Amino acid sequence: MFLSWIERHPRLINAIKDSVDRFGVQYAAARTRAKCDIFDELEEKLNTIFFNSHTVIFNSVGAAHLAVLPVLGSGELPGYSISKKGIKWIVDKTTHASIQILRGILEQFGSFERVSFSDQELINDALKKCRAEGKTPILISDSLGSMGGSNNVVELTKLVKEFEGYFYVDDAHGTSIIGKHGCGYTLHKLGEFSENLILLSSLSKAFGSHGGAASFNNSQTVSTIKKYALNYIFSGPPSLPGIAACVASANIHLSSEITELQAKLKENIQFFDSSVFNVEVKEKTSPIRTIHIGCETEAINTSANLQIQGFLATAAMYPTVPKSQSIVRVAISAAHSKEELKRFADSVNALSKALRGETVC
């Protein structure tokens, strides 16, 4: 996905084969009891990629949320002190469902308020209210949204620091696509790993393999997560072949090859944008584009029609987007050729003409 040639890279494929020969399909023991050396190897490489941070790896970004957020909310996470009056979760309304689903768990530690982070006044009001209550604010949002939008990670990091709070950012759709060593959208924008930042990164999208990572500014944080995060202690570890592929991908990230792939992705995005009309561009850096359809049935039919022509562009509808505002989601990759992008753009333009005006279910 996005830099998808990486997932077919010979280094990753050979790493998986070698890992199966070395370890078997899986080493089914909790990492608190015993673990293979490639876990430490990967975390060390990710520390370098993510601006000399301190990183823990999980089966997925969703698993990382479930591990990190309760420990953060408890006030026991080193480097992230919490007011004696507790915390307040301030969550962007468009934040990924893997966080929204945890609301019941998070409310065991503090109040949970959903705010549109596109409205600066609403965020300020929530932070001021939090200060008046004497609580520690924790802003939670995606960096790049799964439907193509973005948040101003620089301003959000600065703003919550003024209120002595923390910014917990899901950079899953920003990982690898931009920045030195593929550090991702958030760190590329910030230019440093801020002391009040907690960064979540995906190893299974543009990174090309399997899993998720949580990175912190404080070195003691990692040992606390590994001791007290329940799904690190008790759940099965990430797939060993997947971790081996992650190590191979990390080596690519730490080489000049990642820069070449990022440049190809950027070139493809710009080419597609110059070739289509009536396609929404919410964030130029993001490889995600959307075609507004409206009617859910029509969105499904449109996606199916494109598939018949040889293009996979999935329909997104409620509850991913508001009711009657369905879209067709386009994901551009570094692996696409100009010819493929041109054929797809021509199909999208023809589609846009056919759908001009509101579609009615």
Rank of each mutant, 00 (worst) to 15 (best):
L69Q: 07
K35L: 02
Q26E: 15
A30V: 03
L77H: 00
N52H: 10
E43T: 11
N47H: 09
R33Y: 09
Q26I: 08
E43N: 07
A30G: 13
T55L: 05
F23P: 01
V71I: 15
F39G: 03
N47G: 15
L77W: 02
I49E: 01
L72P: 02
T55S: 15
H65K: 08
T48M: 07
V71D: 08
K35Y: 08
E44D: 13
F50P: 08
A28E: 12
G73P: 00
F51N: 13
Y27G: 03
L46V: 12
A63I: 07
T48S: 04
Q26H: 14
D40K: 13
L69I: 04
A34V: 13
E43G: 11
G24S: 06
Q26K: 11
R31G: 09
L66C: 07
N52K: 15
G75V: 06
V25W: 10
R22W: 00
T48L: 08
G73Q: 00
P70F: 03
H54Q: 04
P78G: 07
Y27W: 07
D40R: 14
L66D: 06
E41Y: 00
R31M: 13
A34R: 11
D37K: 11
S53W: 01
Q26W: 12
F51R: 14
P70M: 00
V56P: 02
F39W: 12
Q26N: 13
A30Y: 06
D37S: 13
T48K: 10
A63D: 14
I57N: 07
A28I: 09
A64C: 02
S74Y: 07
P78C: 10
F23Y: 15
I57Y: 08
T48C: 03
E44R: 15
I57E: 01
G62M: 02
T48W: 04
Q26A: 10
E76K: 14
T55H: 07
R22L: 14
A63G: 09
L69N: 05
L46S: 06
V61N: 05
P70Y: 02
P70Q: 04
R33E: 10
L42M: 08
Q26P: 00
V56K: 04
A30N: 10
F51C: 14
F51L: 15
H54F: 12
H65E: 07
L66A: 15
E43A: 06
H54L: 04
R33S: 10
